[in-house]
Design a protein around this nucleic acid. Structure first.
Length: 120
RNA sequence: GCGGAUGGUUGGGUGGCUGCAGCCUAAAAGCUGAGGAAAGUCCGGACUCCAUGGAAGAUGGUGCCAGCUAACAGCUGGCCAAGGUAACUUGAGGGAAAGCGCCACAGAAAAUAUACCGCCUAAUUAAUUAGGUAAGGGUGAAAAGGUGAGGUAAGAGCUCACCGCUUUUUUGGUAACAAAGAAGGCAUGGCAAGCCCCACCAGGAGCAAGACCUAAUAGGGACUCGUGAGCAUAGCUUGGUUGUUCCAGACAGAGUCCGGGUUGGUCGCUAGAACUUAUUGGUAACAAUAGGUCGAGAUGAAUGGUCACCAAACACAAAGUGUUUACAGGAUCCGGCUUACAAAUCAUCCGCACAA
RNA sequence: CGGGGCGUGGCGCAGCCUGGUAGCGCGACGGUUUUGGGUACCGUAGGUCGUGAGUUCGAAUCUCGCCGCCCCGA
């Protein structure tokens, strides 16, 4: 499966209105793309947000790397086509938590979002 | 041994599996892949554009002297002052007899001087008045040379000795400055990180600079000014030209508004005032010569995950186990400054104590 | 990459240029007025002036370094 990165600012802003799941180490947002332009592109897209609250440049870089690595592993398993996933790093927790816990947080976060939608 | 001073170095290491970015390639394989501060963005340059060059002013900066440097507010060496027993450290360290301003409160007086308590003389019963004086008291951060002696009605650089100060001469030093001599009898309170004066330096903007490609036969529309025109040959007037003015010079087009398209790609982009070793010159900063080396180039932005062993520190402590390993991540490049930094380590020097 | 501003009682601001006493409004607390509350009046407490140094006799104020926040231009 092909995993692309989200590069446009407006794609991130769409995530603000989308359903989200706040886990101890990460916040997950996700929505299904409906744009005319990206209709032909069926790949899974992943974006990472890492604000200044997380810390200095070293901490932000480390959080981004961990999320990128963990997101890749998880989305290979349960990623849905034509869907955008946004992972937001949290202060201290994203860096300090064990890698396997980070993966499981992302997985349960995604399942939470789409489980709720089906329930409604 | 204890306590200090100065300057420097390292900034955990090795390997396996799996991933990322660049180069190379048809593909694979392979190679390379953050720092001493990459940081803060505080200075200085290179580079690019403003066609170019010069001058002045404004504004800003620097400020003992000499040297180094591409340049600097940097560095090196020296001088002076302050601190320290010392090694050594710190210092925006020119000018207050160019001018303006300020010095709260207290105090007589805060800088053209003046006189509260005093001291002395005269008038005078006392008190007071007139005059002399600035030694003493008191105020203050600071009071118009200091100490001692002479002198005097009491005093006073009034006189003398020493110290300080000013002017000047000589000697040493490239210089800052130092030393010695002579003269003056004291004139010049402090603040310039208040305005200012003097000397020196600086054109502006910044890699989102700038250049090219694509969409695209990319350009179009409106207005204003100019290429020139007017007068009467000469000459005069009139355009913009990176923030002001002027001069030289170059240019033939320039400016404003409306509307349309893009938010893409390529270059700039890393071989350089580079790093390193040796020699020579220099007290040193540094320079020269010779040899060797090539060490990131991303653009929602690359170093991650995991395992094993070793190293150091700490805790529990019999082996061993557990925890920790700082500050911190390139964004055009370089030289500095400032700030942050676990732990380890090297060299030189000083003081005290003890031993020989 | 470049430029500018701010930090002062619990909150919002003066004072800084031109150095010497930190003040105003709201709020807090106590009292008076009222049957009670509000209003009004009187009084009281509360500030390392972001932080570290320097200049000065003396720094919220002047100068430099650092920290935090905000804004602007390309």
């Amino acid at each position: 499966m092909d995993i692309q990165t989200i590069k446009k600012r407006r794609d991130f802003l769409k995530g603000n209105n989308a359903p989200y799941a706040a886990m101890p180490s990460v916040v997950v947002q996700s929505y299904i793309r409906t744009d005319e332009v990206v209709k032909t592109d069926e790949s899974v897209m992943m974006g990472i947000t890492c604000s200044k609250k997380v810390g200095n440049a070293v901490k932000r870089n480390r959080a981004k790397r961990r999320l990128r690595e963990a997101g890749k592993i998880v989305l290979k398993e349960i990623g849905i086509k034509k869907t955008n996933y946004i992972f937001i790093a949290r202060k201290d927790a994203t860096i300090k938590v064990k890698f396997t816990d980070l993966c499981s947080d992302i997985e349960t976060g995604i399942k939470k979002i789409y489980g709720q939608e089906k329930g409604k």
